[in-house]
Design a binder for these strands. Structure first.
Lengths: 179, 179
DNA sequence: TAGACGTAGA
DNA sequence: TCTACGTCTA
């Protein structure tokens, strides 16, 4: 919470441990966990020019499950899946294999660790009185991806991530809070 | 920076002194300085049912001057003055004497103190290495307001605030930073 | 310059 | 549900 680092860190971030909680998306930036203020996928250009994924935030905004298993299915970005406020461009469209989606795909064969932050908006962590909406869940690898056709008939990417073994167990309990 | 207070505080906020700096708009919320995440005017319903202004953030986004004098001219909200990203509703329109604008107007005869936070986006405070984009400038009273017609031909409100005497001098120096 | 799993309050 | 002087990266 000092100045601003904003470095492209691959893998574990010094000083950040599994279970660390943060109140706002933007609090993830200065510690180096996840730089974008809204986008769910952070990525960088690798030494060979390929995009690789650095971290993802899974907040349930795209309908992805948030359990404590070691497998996470993450929906790609784009296609107007987020609840748009813009009046005109709400029409769903095909997702494209670019930017964050392309980075996640590349990370499959790169086998690089990807940080996962889970967002529990409108929920309360049992062990914490203060509002910690985002919790660092540890390092994952991207195992595979596939295409689906949403109920709206448009293309959607799904990425299957698996938590790397040997990391601290997640002991916190998530409790739904009625808004 | 603990939990969240979010109380409707009129006047000075305990623990916050003139010159205190904050990095993000949202950092102003938990300390009780200014609750809205984007809106420039915070207000509440007074005991008599009238809206009164609690605080304003002057970031220069509406073209207001930011000097160190004791008088501040603040532009009302609404009318699509902020640089809109929405594609369709960019058309400027008359500002209305409601919400924050009405609260500022009422504060004239209420004579209640209004907190002023000055935003120096894309600038650096000489005395601070870390990014402190928002600085608490102290308590002001709203002396008068008037209407203007913008270059676009639409109605705009202007509020004249005067810094209450006897508060600490502001010693920091603002230096423009090329982006 | 525009897009993105943002936020708070009315 | 929508507005609001947001904030980051590409």
């Amino acid at each position: 919470a000092t100045g601003k680092s904003r470095t492209h860190i691959i893998g574990a971030v010094p000083g950040v441990e599994v279970g660390d909680g943060f109140q706002y998306r933007m609090d993830l930036n200065p510690v180096g966990l996840h730089r974008p203020s809204q986008s769910g996928i952070d990525y960088m250009k690798d030494y060979d020019g390929e995009l690789v994924a650095l971290s993802i935030v899974s907040s349930g905004g795209y309908g992805d499950m948030l359990d404590n298993s070691d497998v996470l299915i993450y929906t790609g970005q784009g296609g107007n899946l987020g609840k748009k406020k813009g009046k005109n461009d709400n029409e769903p469209k095909d997702q494209e294999l670019v930017k964050g989606n392309l980075a996640l795909k590349n990370s499959i064969h790169k086998k690089n660790p990807v940080r996962v932050i889970k967002g529990y908006k409108n929920t309360t962590l049992k062990s914490s009185a203060a509002a910690k909406n985002y919790v660092y869940d540890g390092l994952y690898v991207v195992e595979e991806y596939w295409e689906e056709t949403g109920s709206h008939g448009k293309l959607v990417f799904k990425f299957k991530l698996r938590r790397i073994p040997g990391q601290p167990e997640r002991s916190w309990k998530v409790v739904e809070k009625k808004k």
